[in-house]
């Protein structure tokens, strides 16, 4: 068992231990461990300011950690940063290529920066143009392209040198759902070819696409698991789903109840999260009674299984309570 764990670590393409970054008194990232193997899609999830971007900057080698070690594709980031960077592909959160260069010129620059020249460079650029469906816009200025194209160009630029590790910082923010779907298909394809992929996101439904996710809060990883397993965790906070017409006054009333933690509108229904340890059935009949009194009907009310998002919210809440305690 122990031996097996060690060998899986040895083959890990990203292996960071005790990664910490302080800015003055503020601890942005607080001793996290990140291990990603070949072919694995690892998601770093968390609210803005949770430390995702600081973590990814350290892993890419643009920000020196205050403490901890980083190995990328077998290279020590602290000692051989340039060699490690040669193994990394990076897609920044905002479009960080040159808008006043054409798609092809951008790719040519990136190829050169990774030491590709001559026939090899042309070959890889051709591959990228074809594989990421950019051939039609190859001679267009990158700045004039729609966002979806720019994202694909950024990904193409990150893949020219055939990196072993790919970092994607919020790669789909602002992209329409169709393009987002296509983007994830590309990512799966890359993972199948054996690349280790680390992606940050704040879209809950995207986290479900990952093989493994780590949830960050206040610089720490509070939970790390397979998202499917995470979604099936039982919660101590039951959830009721309410569907009603003209239930405005009912909602006002429910908000006052101490048992009700939060009410989230979701697809025409109202998801009512109850405080931990509540008897959901008893509460449901109380709500029905209240609804009859105020003449709100017809009414559908039932206890439902928690969704992935509910689990994540509950975990974050627990973490925040622990911190404030």
């Amino acid at each position: 068992m122990e031996a097996e764990e060690r060998s899986s670590q040895a083959s890990a393409l990203i292996d960071a231990r005790g990664l910490t970054r302080r800015f003055g008194d503020f601890v942005a990232v607080d001793g996290i461990d990140v291990t990603v193997g070949p072919g694995e899609v690892f998601g770093l999830l968390g609210a803005n300011g949770a430390g995702k971007t600081t973590a990814i900057r350290m892993l890419c080698g643009t920000l020196a950690p205050t403490a901890g070690s980083i190995m990328v594709a077998g290279q020590d980031m602290a000692r051989h940063a340039r060699r490690a960077r040669g193994q990394i592909g990076y897609v920044a959160q905002r479009f960080a290529l040159y808008g006043d260069l054409t798609v092809r010129e951008n790719l040519r620059l990136q190829a050169g920066l990774y030491g590709l020249a001559g026939g090899r460079s042309r070959e890889r650029i051709q591959w990228a143009l074809t594989h990421l469906a950019l051939a039609d816009v190859a001679e267009r200025m990158a700045g004039m392209l729609p966002l979806g194209y720019q994202r694909r160009l950024a990904l193409a630029a990150a893949l020219l040198h055939e990196p072993k590790v790919l970092f994607l910082d919020e790669p789909t923010s602002g992209v329409d759902p169709m393009a987002r779907q296509q983007f994830w298909e590309l990512i799966y394809g890359l993972a199948d070819s054996g690349i280790a992929i680390l992606v940050t996101t704040h879209y809950m439904n995207e986290a479900l696409f990952c093989d493994r996710i780590a949830l960050m809060d206040a610089g720490r990883i509070v939970v790390e698991d397979d998202p499917a397993a995470l979604a099936h965790r039982s919660l101590s906070t039951p959830i009721l789903s309410l569907k009603s017409e003209g239930g405005g006054t009912l909602v006002q009333e429910l908000r006052q109840w101490p048992e009700v933690l939060e009410m989230i509108p979701s697809a025409g229904q109202l998801r009512i999260r109850l405080r931990g340890g509540c008897d959901a059935t008893a509460l449901a009949s109380r709500i029905r009674g209240l609804a009859d009194e105020s003449g709100v009907a017809p009414l559908k009310l039932e206890q439902v299984d928690p969704e992935f998002e509910d689990v994540v919210v509950a975990i974050l809440e627990a973490s925040q309570q622990e911190r404030s305690a």
Partner: peptide, 14 residues
């Protein structure tokens, strides 16, 4: 300003 400097620093460019 455009974030391209940070992007350059991720490459092996010295």
């Amino acid at each position: 300003e455009h974030g391209t400097l940070e992007r350059l620093m991720v490459t092996p460019l010295a």
